[in-house]
Design a protein around this nucleic acid. Structure first.
Length: 526
RNA sequence: CGGGGUGUAGCGUAGCCCGGUAUCGCGCCUGCUUUGGGAGCAGGAGGUCGUCAGUUCGAAUCUGGCCACCCCGACCA
């Protein structure tokens, strides 16, 4: 709990930091301190959330918009999202799903058809009540035309289960129509009180999969399959280790029978839910009367699932790997994997360097490596080095006159900051391997970090002490919502999930002392 | 919705107490010198001081209203 006085001090500190960051004098006079200040980013360990916000803006990923709580995703940030989309979309298609698009607006009556669902979202829905504007009497502005009131208000989708299931009703008649495997890429709106770029914004982008199946078993299988896809994506592409698990009743999606999730640990010791997959049972099928005739000729309700990941993954990606010099992107998702910076004093040198570099660019592209040759003469090499580090480009190659003479290039990797001068000959193969190594290395680093921050705790005292340090706590829980609530109230920690690989072992609840058969994962979360 | 804070050039700010059209840095533009880790020097452009009203010869500055944003809390698949 941060006291008011302390929060004021933090405010003061932040504004001072900003001032210092912008004082050129400071940089000039105290070169050493300038190095510590590190590329004008706040220090990650001093103030993690300030570091995060500044990084998002300075790395040109996103910025706040004129609309409260909504963000503008800038070209560089969006290109990372596009890479994520491309990979996920391919994975969805490979597992038999098709894309479709459903409307942004949902009739209000749809939301009330599934009782627990509406309860979960009612408080954060944007509502459209009118469909026309007109000039104000004084002609200086526009006002909502009171005559243009909608008969039934429209809800801006916070998620699309209801519109989609109202369509599914028409799409499904026979077991031959099943399974129905649909995905949509869309924007959704949830009127959140407090927002943060990428992590929680009023409007965000996501994909939502919605499927219908003939049997319970098939729907559960689908739920688990998609969770697995999310886990593979997180670990193999984002290089971010995740725990697969099941949510407790408190944390479950409104309208689901079971919510599966992947949970990741950020560098400040807080957990982040990175994706969810819901087994909906027959809840929506019953609410929207989606029935089919089975092989035996009997009418039955279908079984549903829904699953999604959002632009929140961008926040996860940023917080999982980045450092005080800026972003660290996994090569699999980096829009630019290799940047080549020429070092030249005159046109003649640049021409010689360009000729040599073009060979390398062609060879790298042949291997499907995205490469940028930054031959602008308007920025100095030093500026470019720092800038591409800020943007998380995994590999940088510098080529100058000395290299041309020696037949070499300087290769620097973003993750370790290691620099090596290597022969130009066959460099493309070295780079290709280096990209793989970087991908593995940042995953391993994140995995080691998580291991060091996952604590097995047996007693309440130890729990209280450990939760302050951050990280995951693996502890026994008696399975009651009351205990879960109480722990949340006392520590702000929630049960992130019951891990799928949690082993059966008898123990006692860390809070109540009642018997328990499994450990669950606690953490403070985003 | 409660508590606190801030609005001055693209960004970050000084000035406000004690009224006289605005300070500094970054960035931007031009020129020359530079270029192997955010280049230097010289010159230059850019401001309805959030907004509306009041006090005054005169308002960034004083008074009142309004608006916006930020932080803390409540809330949050």
């Amino acid at each position: 709990m941060i006291s008011h006085r302390l929060s004021l001090q933090i405010e003061h500190y932040k504004s001072c930091t900003k001032t210092i960051l912008n004082l050129g004098l400071f940089k000039k006079t105290y070169k050493n301190i300038h190095i510590i200040m590190s590329k004008f980013l706040p220090n990650k360990d001093d103030d993690y959330s300030l570091w995060y916000n500044e990084l998002v803006k300075k790395a040109d990923l996103a910025e706040n918009s004129a609309v409260r709580g909504c963000m503008v995703i800038k070209p560089y940030g969006f290109s990372i999202w596009e890479k994520m989309q491309a990979v996920l979309d391919k994975m969805f298609k490979e597992t038999g799903h098709s894309n479709a698009y459903f409307p942004l607006f949902i009739p209000k009556s749809f939301l009330s058809k599934e009782a627990s669902h509406v309860e979960g979202f009612a408080k954060e829905c944007a509502v459209v009540t009118h469909y026309r504007l007109k000039n104000s009497p004084d002609g200086k502005s526009v006002i909502v035309d009171p005559e243009a009131k909608l008969e039934e208000e429209l809800i801006v989708r916070p998620t699309s289960e209801t519109v989609i299931w109202s369509s599914f009703k028409n799409w499904v008649q026979s077991y031959r129509d099943l399974p129905l495997l649909i995905n949509q890429w869309a924007n959704v709106v949830r009127w959140e009180m407090r927002t943060r770029l990428f992590l929680r914004t009023t409007e965000f982008l996501w994909q939502e999969g919605h499927t219908a199946h003939a049997t319970r078993a098939q729907a559960v299988e689908e739920t688990e399959r998609m969770l697995e896809i999310y886990a593979i994506f997180a670990e193999q592409y984002m290089a971010m280790p995740v725990v697969k698990g099941i949510k407790t009743a408190n944390e479950r999606f409104a309208g689901a029978e079971e919510t599966y999730c992947i949970e990741a640990l950020m560098q400040d010791g807080k957990a982040l839910q990175a994706g969810t997959s819901h087994f909906l049972g027959q809840n929506f099928a019953k609410a929207f009367e989606v029935q089919f005739t089975n092989k035996e000729g009997k009418l039955d309700h279908v079984w549903g699932t829904s699953w999604g990941v959002s632009t929140r993954l961008m926040g996860a990606l940023i917080m999982a790997h980045s450092d005080n010099d800026g972003l660290v992107l996994p090569p699999m998702l980096a829009p630019i994997q290799v940047v080549i910076v020429p070092i030249f004093k005159n046109e003649e040198q640049l021409t010689a360097i360009t000729a040599k570099v073009n060979e390398l660019v062609a060879a790298l592209r042949k291997r499907n490596i995205s490469v940028k040759f930054d031959d602008r003469d308007t920025q100095s090499p030093g500026f470019k080095f720092a800038d591409y580090e800020l943007k998380g480009v995994p590999v940088r190659i510098a080529v100058g006159p000395r290299d041309i003479e020696a037949g070499t290039a300087e290769v620097a990797r973003r993750d370790t900051k290691e620099k090596k001068t290597l022969p130009f000959e066959n460099l493309e193969e070295v780079i290709e391997n280096l990209l793989k190594e970087i991908q593995e290395n940042i995953f391993k680093k994140a995995l080691d970090y998580r291991a060091s921050q996952t604590h097995v705790v047996e007693t309440w005292d130890a729990f209280l002490e450990t939760i302050e340090k951050g990280g995951f706590i693996s502890a026994h829980w008696d399975g009651t919502p009351e205990t879960e609530e109480k722990i949340k109230e006392l520590t702000k920690a929630t049960i992130r999930c019951i891990p799928l690989d949690s082993v059966e072992e008898s123990g006692v609840c860390v809070y109540s002392g009642k018997p328990s058969s499994k450990r669950v994962l606690f953490a403070r979360a985003y």
